[in-house]
């Protein structure tokens, strides 16, 4: 798409307008948004993801880039088990399950290569897929560039951890960097965001970013988890009860209580209805 757009712009460049003015082609390109024409390979990345992340990600408006954690995705890699194989004339559709969700993977067939037309992977085999997430008629699938079987099960574990690492990298920033920047920048949440890939606004929309006070950086991880949960939950002034925080964050009740003590001590949260309900202190 990007290459096509770029070509058009060159062709009609004499017309002067930024987006090609009245030409149908030009205006279509304009509506693609996000500066589709100027996007090059330099923006491409290969991101490890879970299938649930792909299922959950939505385009902001039709035709917009699909993004996860506020970062547009280009190439992705997933690992999962083949649950169904459906050979068709032009492609082989594999139904891939990685335990987090299920999604179809289409591997297009090269008719010239005889062995391409036969399914390569049997049921229940673990495979790694490299490809792009495609959205067609509101239904998403992965268009696979390449697939291979996984011999060593540890690669599955490794992939899940890597996907988590990248998710945390985009939502919480580079490990270790947060504290330094928090100290230097006087606690400006945006400043922390700016540090990784310029995803500032996007990261905020993703709702995972730590935009807390600078003092939060000195708190334990449990306290930061609790703050993030409070920050991302609706309900505002009423606060959120201990039990709900514990069940939603996966922390134990004791951990939540000590995290709350820590946050109270820093003046980041306050108790509302009772001693076990907290809300973020905004000022």
């Amino acid at each position: 798409m990007a290459q096509y757009g770029g070509y058009q712009r060159t062709g009609y460049g004499a017309q002067g307008g930024e987006d090609g003015g009245g030409f149908i082609g030009g205006s279509q390109q304009g509506s693609q948004g996000g500066g589709g024409g100027s996007k090059g390979y330099s923006d491409d990345s290969l991101r490890p993801v879970t299938i649930k992340q792909l299922v959950d990600c939505e385009e902001a408006y039709p035709g917009a880039d699909l993004s996860i954690d506020g970062i547009p995705i280009t190439q992705v890699t997933v690992v999962g088990q083949v649950r169904a194989v459906n050979p068709q004339a032009t492609n082989i559709t594999y139904r891939l399950d990685d335990g987090t969700a299920i999604m179809d993977v289409k591997k297009w067939v090269d008719a010239e290569k005889a062995d391409d037309t036969n399914p390569q992977f049997g049921l229940d085999t673990y495979v790694r897929v490299w490809g792009r997430l495609k959205s067609f008629n509101g239904k998403k699938h992965i268009g696979a560039h390449f697939m291979r079987a996984i011999d060593d099960f540890n690669e599955v574990s490794y992939h899940m951890l890597e996907a988590t690492y990248v998710h945390l990298y985009f939502t919480k920033g580079v490990p270790g960097q947060q504290q330094q920047q928090g100290g230097a920048g006087g606690g400006d949440g945006m400043f922390v965001d700016g540090g990784h890939g310029g995803g500032g606004n996007n990261a905020m929309q993703a709702g995972g970013a730590v935009n807390g006070p600078a003092r939060l950086a000195q708190c334990s991880r449990n306290a930061q988890t609790m703050f993030n949960f409070l920050n991302n939950s609706p309900g505002g002034n009423e606060g959120i009860h201990l039990n709900l925080i514990a069940s939603q964050t996966g922390l134990s009740v004791r951990d939540v209580i000590s995290a709350a003590d820590e946050l109270l001590g820093q003046g980041i949260v306050y108790t509302t209805m009772d001693d076990e309900t907290w809300a973020i202190l905004d000022y």
Binding site: K52, T100, F153, N154, S157, Y158, A163, T164, H167, G250
Partner: peptide, 29 residues
């Protein structure tokens, strides 16, 4: 069930479980 052979790092697999429970948003509905 699926046999995984003998080369499985069980500590790693258990770590994945812990991580998946800490970050449910990308792992489970």
């Amino acid at each position: 069930s699926m046999d995984l052979g003998t080369g499985v790092d069980f500590n790693l697999a258990n770590t994945v479980v812990e991580i998946a429970h800490q970050h449910k948003s990308i792992f489970t509905y």
